[in-house]
Design a protein around this nucleic acid. Structure first.
Lengths: 303, 303
DNA sequence: TACTGTGTTGCGTTATTTGCAACGCGGCGA
DNA sequence: TCGCCGCGTTGCAAATAACGCAACACAGTA
């Protein structure tokens, strides 16, 4: 019976929805299901009465909820109490990430971190995801949220937080690009890759992967524009300028996601492993280390 | 931070000895070491100051000890509280095991079980370990602590609790058997197996294994006596009657362990997998199921 | 009747945990 | 002073446990 499981139960006991709880805790509904099952085995009684249409707490479940709240409360107050002990860490650390990461990933990490180390200031710098690793090596930032490079510098540590497939996207609005693609799709014909204008990353892993893909498919692409930052790609594609490639993470967090659609392309590009990275040297700094560990424990990676 | 880890920490914070704590919780010292390390990572501070000669709590460790006691207390009182809820299980289950198992294994299982289900009576029946499986199939007992047979009846469930090597033992006192063996050992000569009187199990897995071993080595043993119950073998060997084979578990729990010594024999016999077994049918009984689950969670198997 | 939404389950994969053995280090007796 | 012993830690291989995916079962809905 560990804190993570209690947290999961507490969330589920409120949401009463396996899928939602799973999403909130970055795991699949099946994992939630099994987790509850394990807890029920350990308790020896059913905590939630459930069928396909509804989930509700049993009486024991309600008691368990009380226990779980107490237990989590004690854990938190213990965490609080040792905070100001010995080393009441304070200072500043610098975190670099893309705008998308700041919205989707970092927010989950930051909340527990702030609760735990309220005196550590975080300097959050956003920019093109492709620059994250370089910033670490330059020493400009302490920690970066970035995609794991194919070969990682030995001076860097990396911890995967999630995976995100690289998706081809094309405009959803009516325009020449969209018309061209749709007509080929509906007739089942091969897409005329050479005629399609591409919006691609200026540099970075997405660009490398895409170039490799073009080569392996024997395609010489018509590069319409090179931009920095995946978010910009979604914008341009949404406006009908061409076809682009972005990580799914960027797409689902984009306000423009309804303006574009995903193109099913075979073979798919190899997915991004998105995580945090820091130089081994900087990790010796207790502040950086604290952030690192906190993120590790609060953000459960998926697979 | 789960209950098992807290329990481990609480034990260690009292014993201040990794090896002892490991033994008490059925794990190796290295596992204890890593477990503490993980907790320290999660807490973010050192809990125990330790070097090769001493282990002592840090200040944070003391606070953590308080937290751990509280937390475990809450868990226990929650367990108490739901006990009398819904199904205050009561009734009787019948457990069969050898005397050795009753001392060494069952005692660890029984204590938490009694705390949790005080109204379930346990009828404990001891006898030759070799009979355990048969008792289950006869329906004489609900659960048996026994060695896992080479082929397990499909009607039975088995859960391994620990492993125990099968050891050759010979008398430690001066006697003809001991003299014979020592003289060969000191001269480095092969042992004269045919001349050595053997005390063997009347039946059961130990007997089967030993017979196979004799065959594979091309030895026709001089069987001095066939006895039932491994404990009796230790007695007879200790008195100087001959050489016997017993699981290590029996040896270390025997009050006569100083009267015998282990003979290094190659190749060794394949170890016993000691665990609990029950018929699938009986496991549907909530009482039996409760015992089964309780034992599973309270007794951490080693490897 | 087909379809959608929801929790569960079989299966293969991945991550985590463990034991063993080797190591480093400090005390103790010869 | 040297070798030995006890104790905690670490590298490595192996086993366990947890996970995601996809398929499924079931009930409400269009």
């Amino acid at each position: 019976m560990d804190t993570r499981q209690l947290q999961l139960f507490l969330h589920l006991s409120t949401s009463l929805h396996f899928g939602q709880t799973g999403e909130a805790l970055h795991m699949s509904a099946s994992a939630v299901s099994r987790s509850i099952k394990r807890m029920e085995e350990e308790v020896g009684q059913r905590l939630l009465e459930r069928d396909n249409r509804s989930v509700r707490l049993t009486e024991v479940g309600r008691q368990f909820q009380t226990y779980a709240r107490q237990s989590m409360g004690q854990w938190q107050s213990f965490s609080e109490s040792i905070k100001q002990g010995a080393e009441g860490l304070e200072g500043e650390i610098s975190v670099f990430c893309s705008v998308t990461a700041a919205y989707s990933i970092l927010s989950d990490v930051l909340e527990p971190f702030r609760r735990r180390y309220p005196d550590i200031e975080i300097k959050l710098r956003t920019g093109d995801q492709a620059d994250g690793i370089a910033h670490l090596l330059n020493g400009e930032d302490d920690i970066a949220i970035a995609a794991r490079p194919d070969k990682l510098s030995s001076r860097l540590q990396f911890f995967t937080l999630t995976h995100s497939p690289l998706l081809f996207i094309y405009p959803a609005i009516h325009c020449s690009v969209e018309g061209n693609i749709q007509s080929h799709l509906s007739s089942g014909a091969e897409l005329p890759w050479q005629e399609i204008p591409f919006i691609v990353s200026e540099r970075g892993l997405a660009r490398t992967r895409l170039d490799q893909w073009f080569r392996s498919q024997g395609i010489r692409p018509d590069i319409y524009a090179q931009v920095s930052g995946h978010e910009a790609i979604v914008s341009m594609v949404g406006l009908g300028f061409g076809v682009g490639v972005v990580p799914e993470l960027v797409l689902v967090n984009s306000p423009l996601k309804d303006k574009v659609q995903v193109l099913d392309v075979q073979p798919p590009l190899v997915p991004f492993a998105v995580g945090m990275s820091a130089s081994a040297q900087r990790l010796e700094n207790p502040l950086v280390k604290a952030f690192w560990e906190c993120a590790k424990s609060s953000y459960r990676r998926d697979f």
